[in-house]
Design a protein around this nucleic acid. Structure first.
Lengths: 240, 240
DNA sequence: CTTCGAAATTTGGCATACCAAATACCAGCA
DNA sequence: TGCTGGTATTTGGTATGCCAAATTTCGAAG
C-alpha cells in the first residue's frame, strides 16, 4: 500500500535522501539552550568568587518564553556539566576546581594524541597542508596580537583543526566540550603567553610528524605538548 | 552578622563539609532519568530494525508523574546522545551506526591508554595489586561462563577498574559513557568471544607493565589492545 | 542592640491545560 | 477497488497555575 510504504519511508532514517525534515523553526528549548550556553560562554566565570546563579523566571521573561522550555534547556546544560540546579537555591554556573581543569587537559591530551595518530593514516596530503597553512597564520598572530584571549582562541582553533584531521567527529565533539571548559579560565590565567614561544615550535614538529606519517611520533608530540600544559597549570595557576 | 555568615556558608560550596544537603527525596526528574536510562540499558536496541520510539504520556502515567519531569529527563538523555526527540513523531532511541561505534572504541582507546599512563605514576602498589586480583576472577569467569553478555560485562568491568587507577574521575566518567553505548551492541555481536583467548594474555601484560611502572609500554599495550577491537568490529561486525 | 520566631515572600518542582502541526481515519468519488 | 480530500485524533511544544520547601523580613521580647 502506498500509505504504509510512505510511512515506512519516513520511519527509516536515511535512504540516500539528504534532507532532514527541513529545519522548521527551532524550538524554544533549543533556542534557550543556545542562548544560555552563549551567555555562559561570554561570562567571566572565574572573575569573582561569588556564586553565579541564574533565575528561571528572570531568564524566561528575558527570552520571552515560559519557564518550561527554559527548564528543559537547563536540564540539558546540567547534564553537560555547565550548570547545576540546587533546589530552593537557584541554578548556579559550575566553577571547575583546579584538579578538574587538569583532568580535562589530560583527557584532551589523550583524545588529541589519538587524533594525531589516526590522522597520520587517514588524512590526505591536502588536508595536512591546510593545517600547515593554518599554522602559518597562527604563527603570525603569535607575534602581532598580544592579547591573551585572542591567542588562546587561535591556539585552540589550531588544535581543533588538527583533531578534525582524524576524521572522527566523536573526537572532535568530545574535545570541543573540553575546550569549552578550559577556555573559560582564560580570563584568570595567562598560561598561554608563557608557553607561546615553545608552542610555535611544538606545533611545527607535530605537523612535520603527521606529514611524515609517523604515527608514534605524532601521537607522542601531541600528548607531551598538552600534558606539559597540564603540568604548567598544576604548578603555576591558582584557582579555588 | 550571624545571618550573613550563615548565608555565606551556604553559598560557598565545599568548605570541607562532606555532606550534600542530605539526599532529600529524589526529584521526579532524577527518578525519571534513572528509570529511562535503566530501561534503555535493558532494551535490546539492535534487536530489530524497527525504529524504537517512546511515548511521553505513556511513560508519565507509567511512572506516576506528569509529562513535565519526564520531558526534562528526556532532554538530559537527548543531550547524552541516547535519545532523540523528533517533533510530531516521537522520542526515539538512538541507534549508533557502525562507524560511530568504531569512533567510540577509538576514543575509548585514547582515554584508557592515557589512564594507564597516569596509573603508572600515580596508583599505589596496593591498588595495582587489586587490579591483578580482579584479573584472576575475571580469568576464571572466562573459562566458566560462556554467555556472551556476562563475559562482556566482566570485560568492561576490568577496563573500568583499570581506568579508575588513574585517579581521574573525568576519564572514568567519559569512558563509562562510551561503554554504555558499546555495551548496547552486545546482543548483536559476539566479538568478545572471538577475542577472549588473547584478551586474557593482553590484560596480564597490561598489569605487568603498570606494575613495572612502564608508562610508555602500558599506554601502548592498552591502546593496541583496544584499537584491535576497533579493527575487529570494523571487519567482522555488521550493523546498519 | 541583639535574638528569636512567626508570617510573608520567593523559588523551584510538578501538574494541568491549550495549541498547532502532523498523522490517521473515513467517506465519497472515479 | 483504489484514490482523494477533508475531518477527527494524536502528539509534542508551550504556557500557566499551584504547592511545598526554604529564605527573608520584621516585629516583639530580652
Amino acid at each position: 500500500m502506498s500509505k504504509a510504504a510512505l510511512n515506512k519511508r519516513w520511519q527509516n532514517g536515511d535512504n540516500g535522501l539528504a534532507i532532514e525534515r527541513l529545519p522548521a523553526k527551532e524550538s524554544f528549548k533549543s533556542r534557550a539552550y543556545a542562548a544560555l550556553k552563549e551567555a555562559i560562554t561570554n561570562m567571566n566565570i572565574y572573575g569573582s568568587d561569588e556564586p553565579m546563579l541564574l533565575d528561571e523566571r528572570d531568564i524566561s521573561e528575558r527570552l520571552g518564553a515560559s519557564r518550561t522550555p527554559i527548564r528543559e534547556a537547563v536540564a540539558m546544560l546540567e547534564q553537560e556539566g555547565l550548570l547545576r540546579a540546587v533546589p530552593r537555591r537557584g541554578i548556579l554556573v559550575v566553577r571547575r576546581t583546579k584538579a578538574e581543569i587538569i583532568e580535562m587537559i589530560e583527557a584532551w591530551a589523550a583524545l588529541e594524541s589519538m587524533a594525531a595518530r589516526l590522522a597520520t593514516s587517514r588524512a590526505s596530503d591536502e588536508a595536512i597542508a591546510e593545517l600547515r597553512a593554518f599554522f602559518k597564520e597562527f604563527d603570525l598572530n603569535r607575534i602581532e596580537r598580544e592579547r591573551c584571549d585572542e591567542y588562546s582562541t587561535a591556539n585552540i582553533a589550531f588544535h581543533q583543526a588538527l583533531i578534525r584531521l582524524s576524521g572522527s567527529s566523536l573526537l572532535a565533539a568530545m574535545t570541543d566540550n573540553l575546550f569549552f571548559h578550559v577556555r573559560a579560565i582564560r580570563h584568570r590565567t595567562i598560561f598561554e603567553m608563557d608557553r607561546a614561544q615553545r608552542s610555535a615550535s611544538d606545533h611545527l614538529e607535530i605537523i612535520q610528524a603527521i606529514e611524515a606519517r609517523d604515527a608514534d611520533r605524532a601521537e607522542r608530540l601531541v600528548r607531551d605538548h598538552t600534558l606539559r600544559l597540564a603540568r604548567h597549570v598544576e604548578s603555576h595557576v591558582n584557582l579555588d
